[in-house]
Amino acid sequence: MQVDSSLTGPFPRSEALVRATRDLDRGRTSAEEVGRLYRSTATELARLEQTHHLAPATGGYLRWADLFRPFAEGWSGFEVGPVTRWYETNTFYRQPILHAPPDRSAGALGGWFPAAEAGIEAATAKAILPGPYTFATMIDNRSGETTEALIHRIGRLLAAEVAELRTTGYLNFQFQEPSLVVHPPAPTAGESTIAAYRAIAETLGTAPSYVWSFFGDAAPVLPLLRRLPAQGVGVDLAETEVRDLAGHPAGRGLGLGVLDPRTTLLENPADIARQVHAACEAAGVDRVQIGPGGPLDLLPWESAVRKLPLLNGAQTALRNGGGRS
């Protein structure tokens, strides 16, 4: 069994960065000083990712206020809207308000991707973007466009972003799709989602890509997830039962969210190994990618850092024959 591991979303800001960004809000420090701290923290995280064999690396996406903010600020048609609950968490995002069909301009988002700041070669980094279904359904759409049309349009715009990121060296892509499992799409929206990913896939070519679901049970939408033209799909094992992974298509990658960002309680690597083994048996696969089940920025920095070695610990346990019940 081959098990790779990688982070799957934004990492929390360090306590120093928390203080600095607060101070910046209060006019007690300079943007330059905070920028310096962003760079050093992203570099530190990249080093931790390397130490714990987490590849591709992410750099933490520390500057992103939320999953949509770079797009709400960088694409046309949007206004950054009210503070809105981020799924079933005690965190919030500013819900973008879409007043007109969105559009993009070249170079508007490049600075938001953290590889360069973290000192990671883009080719070994992972570009994490919102998935088109989650994007289209988590905003306040006042553009007059139907949800279905908007999903498809956002897919085409994301495809253009992917193309631009590829020119800067990015090879690995992940699309965040919590809404697919938290608010499963109606059949028409599901077909639009497939069409959106088809547009993205045309740009991706053979570049590795994962659609990562979290915050919900993937079982009811596995048939749709498996139809998406991506190299793999990720599911959150704190929400999804491994027995439901049966029938995974041959040749399609499987991602397993095995670290729970809802608790600081450290998972036991042996328990993770057992879950991974059971999931592989159920799905009939011998290669998986493991990572956090959701974004680790629900934890404080130190608690998130303490979870990083567990992925490698589980890999070691599996290599040593652990995980078989």
């Binding site: 929390p12 800001r13 928390v18 960004t21 206020a65 939320d66 965190t91 995002y93 600081t264």
Partner: peptide, 15 residues
Amino acid sequence: LLGHVRSFDSKYYLK
């Protein structure tokens, strides 16, 4: 008390 978690933007709470 373990550390700060972001609520939104640059607002945090000690969790």
